[in-house]
Design a binder for these strands. Sequence first.
DNA 1: CTGCTTGCAAAGTGTTTGCAGGCCC
DNA 2: GGGCCTGCAAACACTTTGCAAGCAG
Lengths: 165, 165
Amino acid sequence: MDPAAPHPTPSRPDPVEEAVRRIRAHGERVTVARTAVLRVLADAGSYLTADQTFVRVNRAAPGVHRTTIYRALDALERLGLVVQTRMGQDAAAYQLSPSLLGATEPRLHVICRTCGRVDEVAADLLADVAQRLAAENQFTLDPTAVALTGQCTHCATGNRSNSPR
Amino acid sequence: MDPAAPHPTPSRPDPVEEAVRRIRAHGERVTVARTAVLRVLADAGSYLTADQTFVRVNRAAPGVHRTTIYRALDALERLGLVVQTRMGQDAAAYQLSPSLLGATEPRLHVICRTCGRVDEVAADLLADVAQRLAAENQFTLDPTAVALTGQCTHCATGNRSNSPR
DNA sequence: CTGCTTGCAAAGTGTTTGCAGGCCC
DNA sequence: GGGCCTGCAAACACTTTGCAAGCAG
């Protein structure tokens, strides 16, 4: 409850501050909408869709238009501050870039095709794959943008009682 | 050009015939639309979107409605005869199930985030990943449904002259 | 004949665009 | 103050749904 130490890692300031710095460094503008989007993504534990971001941003900064969320997310992605991932058929999902979080590895998730559940998995899972792609196909894999689809044990064992989505 | 040997592997007849057999085995109906969809997918070298399938089906069987393509693809996917993959932001892409082609491994592709190009890669690329997911996360990976995103050398080397999509 | 499939039209969802006004730098 | 960002409305692409008619089994 110490207001002076909101985070366990004081050495890493605030990802939002760092992001703002980088926006300026790129010569782009820091606006209420963009800052709010960054804050919301920073506070979110995992992926957020554009719509979820819209809802949360409007709690803190009412009046921000849905279109602006899309444009802000797009701009932040171009600046490398936000990463977009596609999971299944659904809306695109966004998270802060690992570089802002001090993480060397991005968060990696698997999604169950049947029940739609999302689980986090070992971040280095695709390390070998990335190396092989670089060597054999001259292709630089973006592990964050990869959505691994399949089935969780619960659904794979023929459990049909799950909500199909 | 020998009409009696259209395929180098005569032991495997026609994926469409096999698919039709399985449709019947599941107690579902074999229709012109479904057969045409299967034929088109069988003849296609790689992924087809629903719309591409629609266009090609209508060349062979004019009058088939776009909605029917969606419903046919959905039905065939439920029967395990067709696999759907999402690539980037674009429309869903479909291919015949590997089980129909006698292949043990599905086709695997990488897509360049910048220029949108799709390349086929080694089919066993994700074998280790699948094993790890099974062991560590009790998760059955569906390699066919995975779209690997990243950048091709051409775009990664700062080449900005590409059509951005 | 029974009811799964289809055609048609319309709605739905997620996302993008054009334009005028507003705010950041 | 110049021009990037935004709000608003409309368009957009892809996909789904309701209903009546049609065809497979």
